[in-house]
Amino acid sequence: ELSWTAEAEKMLGKVPFFVRKKVRKNTDNYAREIGEPVVTADVFRKAKEHLG
Rank of each mutant, 00 (worst) to 15 (best):
30 Y>N: 01
35 G>A: 05
41 A>F: 04
2 L>R: 05
48 K>A: 14
6 A>Y: 09
26 N>H: 14
38 V>K: 07
47 A>E: 02
51 L>Y: 15
23 V>R: 04
38 V>W: 06
12 L>I: 05
48 K>Y: 13
33 E>W: 13
22 K>S: 12
7 E>N: 05
37 P>S: 14
15 V>R: 03
31 A>P: 00
13 G>K: 15
25 K>C: 06
47 A>W: 12
35 G>R: 06
38 V>C: 08
36 E>W: 06
31 A>Y: 00
17 F>K: 11
4 W>G: 00
14 K>T: 09
36 E>R: 05
22 K>L: 14
16 P>N: 06
10 K>T: 11
52 G>S: 13
51 L>C: 08
18 F>C: 13
49 E>I: 12
18 F>H: 14
10 K>C: 06
4 W>V: 00
46 K>S: 09
34 I>A: 09
49 E>P: 07
23 V>Q: 05
31 A>D: 01
41 A>S: 07
39 V>N: 01
27 T>A: 08
18 F>I: 11
14 K>L: 12
52 G>V: 13
50 H>E: 08
26 N>T: 09
10 K>E: 15
46 K>I: 05
1 E>K: 10
12 L>W: 03
1 E>D: 11
2 L>S: 04
24 R>I: 04
21 K>T: 13
30 Y>T: 02
26 N>R: 12
13 G>Y: 12
23 V>N: 03
11 M>R: 04
32 R>D: 03
29 N>Y: 08
24 R>S: 02
22 K>W: 15
1 E>A: 12
48 K>T: 13
46 K>N: 08
33 E>C: 09
11 M>N: 03
29 N>Q: 14
16 P>C: 07
12 L>F: 04
47 A>C: 06
44 F>K: 01
40 T>L: 01
32 R>P: 01
14 K>W: 07
15 V>W: 08
14 K>M: 12
10 K>M: 13
40 T>F: 01
40 T>S: 06
52 G>E: 13
47 A>M: 06
32 R>I: 08
47 A>H: 06
9 E>F: 09
31 A>T: 03
14 K>I: 06
4 W>E: 00
40 T>N: 07
49 E>N: 09
24 R>W: 04
6 A>S: 10
2 L>N: 05
14 K>E: 15
33 E>S: 15
1 E>L: 11
21 K>M: 13
19 V>C: 10
40 T>Y: 02
35 G>W: 04
50 H>D: 06
